[in-house]
Design a protein around this nucleic acid. Sequence first.
DNA 1: TGTTAATTGCGTAAATTTTACGCAATTATT
DNA 2: AATAATTGCGTAAAATTTACGCAATTAACA
Lengths: 227, 227
Amino acid sequence: MRYSYQYPHPAVTTDCVIFGFDGNRLNVLLIERGIEPYKGQWAFPGGFIRMDETADECARRELREEAGLDDAYMRQFYTFSAVDRDPRERVITIAYYALVQQRQVTGGDDAARAQWFALDQVPRLAFDHDVILRHAIDALRRQIHFEPIGFELLPQQFTMTQLQRLYEAVLAVKFDRRNFSNKMRHLGLLDELDEKSILPNKKEAFLYSFNRENYAEFKERGFRLEF
Amino acid sequence: MRYSYQYPHPAVTTDCVIFGFDGNRLNVLLIERGIEPYKGQWAFPGGFIRMDETADECARRELREEAGLDDAYMRQFYTFSAVDRDPRERVITIAYYALVQQRQVTGGDDAARAQWFALDQVPRLAFDHDVILRHAIDALRRQIHFEPIGFELLPQQFTMTQLQRLYEAVLAVKFDRRNFSNKMRHLGLLDELDEKSILPNKKEAFLYSFNRENYAEFKERGFRLEF
DNA sequence: TGTTAATTGCGTAAATTTTACGCAATTATT
DNA sequence: AATAATTGCGTAAAATTTACGCAATTAACA
């Protein structure tokens, strides 16, 4: 008991919902807790903020320490402050979601066990992390309308079908293959590459990459897919 | 110095950007600080979170205490955590914006002085509140595409022109009067009332009100105005 | 009181975008 | 060799967006 204040202070943590895309479905990376409370249950990587780091830095550090992930796309989406969301003490958590290429991480490292779960197979989570997950999905869906966020989930080069599967997975809808392709190509967000893909069990297809020059403008002006 | 912890805890506050609409422009309500730091400078109403209240409750309490506002529409939009954003100690603030009918509040009450400022006439603000304001405007613009948020800023009954002015003020664009009206009426979001308005210096016009039944669906599915 | 300007209601034609498909060519599977 | 899946390239119809016209009413002002 070494740090004292005139008024009570809550503890502050960051938690990070990590979304990955396996080419077909959207998944989340969970960590099995090694300590109480909720020992043995699944939770998002996260931890207490240090006095010399911002929330962004904290979230990024936890991501590295607990999930072995560097350079992930991250976004703060909500701060959860229910009074009794942590049994130990008053803890307010600043929640982020991250988008990563799923193959980057397979197992976690260190002591903790990390595992990918499909969105409809997520077990009961520690703390109020169920609530946090629901909010994260909502935030991601909202964001995907305004920003070409999905590109963070795909490899540098991808086929149109891969891109479509991603959008379908995030928004939980189905698009017409030809219309999706037409719309995407006319948006100017993609560069059509000369190469073609060689994917297992697939016919070869054109490869695309993300056009960084137009990225900023689409972030500003927003863009929307039919649905 | 009466509250001690094993690890250092940051202080946590909420701050609230209050948007009002005067029929023509979007304004923010600022409070002149009566105490150090930044005494005499303008800032958003806000204050330290209590251990028995959520951030939502805290923001609502501060709104009532400092701006005399009850029942405002409020929304958390970002948490600011720069290490030295407060000269006193490490303070993390959970930021909200509120939408109110501007006539509800004129002057603040209590000791503090409250005043409406047009967005382009906001003075230098205390702390990092300039940054917070910028983020709040961005968040509001983003939100207005998905949710019929603007209705919180208008009286129960309003004319189509009033609604258009509101959207124009928030998005900083101009719409064609006839197209705006057509689109809005076809959206099904409005109830056309039998009454007509009697506004000063205006020709009488039909009054509309917000159709609460369709509100939820539009929150879900989103809707977008041309621009 | 007469004239001008602003405001409102009600259109409509053209341009653009969305939507719903067809069809042939290539590749994997059996 | 036959069948199914995948991809590329269209196109016509439907729906929406965009850019205006025009008359009627009210306010403002000479």
